[in-house]
Structure formats: C-alpha cells, structure tokens
Design a protein around this nucleic acid. Structure first.
Lengths: 111, 111
DNA sequence: ATAACATATGAACAGATATTCATATGAATG
DNA sequence: CATTCATATGAATATCTGTTCATATGTTAT
C-alpha cells in the first residue's frame, strides 16, 4: 500500500465519478460495438434495412450467428425490426449509431 | 441456403461496406471502451491526470490490474503518460474520449 | 551499492463471449 | 393440416479477456 499522498486528487475525482450503474451501462453499450460481426451488421444497416438471411449472405455467416447478434443489437436498442410475412427486416433504431461510429472513425484517422 | 432474391440490396450494400481492416480497427477501438474498469479510468482522467497508484486506490483495485488496463488504453492512443521521478502520470490523449463517451451517454438517456 | 518505492510484465486461471449445431417457433401456401 | 421457408433459441464448445500473483525494470535516496 502506498503512502504517497494523492488524497486531494482522489477526493476531487471521486466526487465527479458517475455511479457504477451508469458506468456499467455505458461499457455495456460500447461492448456491443466492440465486435466485428456486429459492426459489419451496423454498417450494412446504415445503407438499407435488411432481412436476416440477406445479412447472413452478405457476411457469409450462418443464419443462427446473425440472429444471435441481432438480438444483442436489439437489446441495446441499436436496431429495431418489423415483420413482413415470413421475413423480418432489421433497421437502425436511431441516428446515434451513425454519430458514434463517425466519432470512432475520427479518432482512428488521427492515429 | 435461401433462394430469396435480395441480390439488388446485397450488391448495393456490399459496395458501401468499409474494408474488413477498417471495421476491425473500429471494433477494436470500441472494445476498449467496453470494459468497466477502463471506463472508470477514462472518467477519472477526464477530471485530472493521475498516477497509477492513485487510480488503483480510487478504484480499489491492485496496481497490476490498473497497469495492464492502462497499457490497453495507451495502445488505443486514448491516453498518454509522462514520467516525474518514480511516478508516471497518465492523461487523456485527446478530446475524442470526451465526445465518444458523451455520444454513448445520449443514446442511453433516450432508452 | 543497496534499499525502497512506483510501475511494468509474463504466466496462470477464471469468467465471458461468439459461433455452431440441432431444434423450436411462427407464418404462408398447397 | 402438413410442408416449406424465415427466424429464433438453447446447449456445447473454443476462444478471448480481465484479474491475480510473482517478479522484473527503473528511479531516487541513503
């Protein structure tokens, strides 16, 4: 245990930290963006709504994998879906996806 | 394999998809935000630069865990550090951290 | 030089996560 | 109502990830 006295800073920072719950929620949200498959799905939906099997074909992955990931995206309220007969179309839920991705982009290009 | 014909959409979307490499880089960036410990560290640094042991004390975690996570943050160019004698201070590398977190926030509060 | 302190690193382990396979649900159609 | 098609779901598995422990590096002071 260190006797280093950073108590001033600690107190200051501690008061400004969000609650554990909020931090968890935020981390959980970003976790959703932190997977290649889901990121590809989001990019695809950025262009057009798509049904599950079209996404699967696009990414050359099996239908089950895509379904599982769409569920994750839906739980995070990043996508919505609508039924049309047998097929279910998925689409981006709101514009945050676009802005969040754009922000990441900007960070990357600055190296 | 489905005989459903979504070939029009597939072609359209395929042409707009970023390269696998870019998508991977983006996912890797968000992965870094997708962990509670790292998120807490980022929030702390948002207030003030801090040395490793101060962060460890703040989060009640051992020094090694914090060091490992700081390395992850540094590899993603999200934090930088400077040495002052024995102690090493970490700080946010740029303003993207702030804007990326803010964007996630906005999504959360909209439920 | 040696001791003490701050941080970094590597190996090991436990817990989380993505994909696959098999199967279930649910809608349309003959 | 039985079959087919589109999607969803649960269990199993293999991989990845975060933390811990032990130890190494590097700096300061005696």
């Amino acid at each position: 245990m260190s006797e280093h006295n950073h108590n001033h800073i600690l107190e200051k920072v501690r008061n400004e930290l969000p609650t554990d719950e909020l931090i968890c929620d935020l981390a959980d949200l970003y976790k959703v963006f932190g997977d290649t498959t889901r990121m590809k799905i989001l990019f695809a939906l950025l262009e057009s709504e798509m049904c599950v099997c079209a996404i699967a074909e696009l990414l050359s992955m099996n239908q089950s994998a895509i379904s599982h990931q769409l569920k994750v995206l839906k739980n995070a309220n990043l996508v919505g879906n609508r039924r049309e007969g047998k097929t279910i179309y998925y689409f981006l839920a709101d514009d945050h996806v676009k802005t969040i991705i754009a922000q990441g982009f900007e960070h990357l290009i600055e190296e």
